[in-house]
Amino acid sequence: MSEIQNLTIPEIATITEIKDEIVDVRTFYLSFDARTGGEAPKIKSGQFVMCTVFGAGEFAVSLPACPENDRFHLTVRRVGKVTNALHALSAGDKIGIRGPFGNGFPFEEIKGKNIIYVAGGIGLIPLRSSIMHVMRNKDEFGRILLFLGARTPQELMYQYNLEEWKAAPGFETYITIDNPVPDWDGETGFVHTLIKKKNIPVKDTVAFVCGPPMMFNAVIKELTEMGIGEENIISTLERHMKCGIGKCQHCAIGRTLVCTDGPVYTYRQIKTLGEQI
């Protein structure tokens, strides 16, 4: 239903269900009031929407849903005014949505390659969609490796998917937490050290990396040292955003705008932007 115009004026959506993920993070399932059957707009992995919480404001949020067969949802950590207001809502409440916006992940270009996902903490949110897509279309890709890190077991995102991914044929899933704790018998230590320990493919490989700046830099260092080209490391950038459509310029980085030129960039691009990430 592309005729629905939501560039500037949000369309109204209903929260159908709310799920607690980890501390301060919740997932909100949505249906779209003006579309037949509440069906969601078509999305690409890696895109985002602008979400209005009435009376509070608007913020940018990734789309973790699988583009093909998932319920439309947002996973949000509360950090400030608007995200706190969203967390105060319950199922049945209305919110506003503009978008989806942004470029999305380049699946066409990476067909046939090995894929490595590296996510730290809630960095998994923007990667989930991509992982779900790849899981459905495994045959199009080579080896698929998942490296997920969190500070503690309680801070592992999407617990319900982890089992699925661990079990998914062809998926090599590694999960680590920063420091050992009782009742955790999995890997410990930072994600980038874990990568080093595992035998990862380097040739014909694309890595998706997402997480806090410190982790991001450490992982990039590791991957490039192992020989993965900068153009084969893909990430999504986060910037202060207001409009989502390339006009307010809050999200400017170098000569690009994250909302329209991004949020997905290769590490090579990021480096040439000449700004901090």
Binding site: T52, G55, G57, R239, K242, C243, C248, Q249, H250, A252
Partner: peptide, 30 residues
Amino acid sequence: SCFNIVDPQTSEEAADRMRTWDSCSYEGYS
């Protein structure tokens, strides 16, 4: 042409969406 967007409340149940000039010189801008 930089702008900011804010939603000041006009009552318990209502708000306006305002666009105001903004500047990349402000620290809070980014």
